[in-house]
Design a protein around this nucleic acid. Sequence first.
RNA 1: GUGGGCGUAGCUCAGUUGGUUAGAGCACAGGGUUGUGAUCCCUGGGGUCGGGGGUUCGAGUCCCCUCGCUCACCCCA
Length: 429
Amino acid sequence: MKIQAPKGTRDFYPKQMAWRNYILDAWRRVSVRNGFDHVDGPIFELLDLYKIKSGDGIVSELFNFEDRGQRQLALRPEFTPTLARMVAAQAHALPKPIKWFCMPNLCRAERPQRGRLREFFQWNVDLLGCDEPIADAECIFTAVDLLRELGLGPHQVRVKISHRQTVRHVLVKLGVAEDKIIDAFNLLDRRDRLERKEFVANAAALGLDETRVQRLDEIGRMVFPAGRIDQMRTQIGVDDELGDLAGLDRELTAFGISDWCEYDLGIVRGLAYYTGIVFEIHEASGAERAMAGGGRYDGLIKLFGGPDTPAVGMGMGDVVLMNVLTDKGLMPEDASPRPDVFVIAASDAAAGRVSSVAAALRRRGLHTRFSYKSTRNVGKLLKDAAAAQARHAVILDDEASQGVASVKDLASGGQTQVAIADLPAHFTG
RNA sequence: GUGGGCGUAGCUCAGUUGGUUAGAGCACAGGGUUGUGAUCCCUGGGGUCGGGGGUUCGAGUCCCCUCGCUCACCCCA
């Protein structure tokens, strides 16, 4: 019996690996140019690390095991606890602000479905030690910068932003008691999935009458364009309570990404640990699950035993991102690295020179390939060169004994004679 | 964890009321011709028909169980 790959995992053959690298290379490139440093941690941690942040309930949603020393371990289902542990351990030695990114593979024991697998890659961008809205805005900018890098535009994706404190103020103003705030958040989060009757019944349990239930529903559905936060002031009737959101609005405009963003107080995020701004990035039609999510989590480093440290972060998975890019025709057909040169032997006499020519080119750093076929059929070998996406073909024939080869530009079809000894210099300019 | 749909070659599929040794195209590999990316031709590898059990003289086909994939629900750090 053949053994299959475990449920919800992927095999990366060269074609798929090229796509994966296409995404991860973009993540790395964009992170670096936005000033973030690359970090990573272990692929498994002590199970307790995850319990600290998420409680005992998390255990059923991750892969855990016991080592020979009876230690309870877990494959990492997220990176944030590792990051918090790392920061807490060296908090006083690290220069502030801390700007880190990583691209870990994460494992979750969930039933796979569209946009969700059991092992996936997640780009994490975190900025710690700064409690100003510019940090939140830079985090969002970095995510937008990536989406733009991959060919997406503001009409294809939406960054939906909310704020824990603003929503709390609105809820309190509506008459929700302090001890019911969490329930109210949950209700707001689930409003699209609930029948109207259920929604009203749940809202009534929060102490809201029919008019106020109606108002809560309205507010949950309101969307305001970034750069026009004044609309939120007048339509929702908040002002001083806007706080950070007003500051963020100015920064998003300054970063030049307000056309990508909008405010949506219906965005909740399941996390109990977010303390301020929260956001999600969705494909504009809303067809896919969230492409990215993040927010401010000022209390977390302290929770892991470090100093009180403000923090904002963002996570983006590779699965939904690739779904969206594929649907919009933005994934390259072939993302494999293109050979600079493909060496061809057009005669038996020339065949013996292929490896030495290839070696000379490779020593100069040129991506060089050749065929293992015994045919001297130039047409067939050129087809192989084209299939490999090579930029040039070097054709060795009987003239090779005089030290000359033909160089064919596979894009233009043009062909010139070049001395074999000059080939490395010819291609490296 | 719950429910729907789907399982024949790497991919897309055909396979008659159950009937001989399960096929095609594409892809892949080797080769030939015109020697310069095309076209054409020859050859080859590859399937326990997802797996197991049952009915039958005989099962890819009918029945049961199971596994996997997929979509949705739950959840979503």
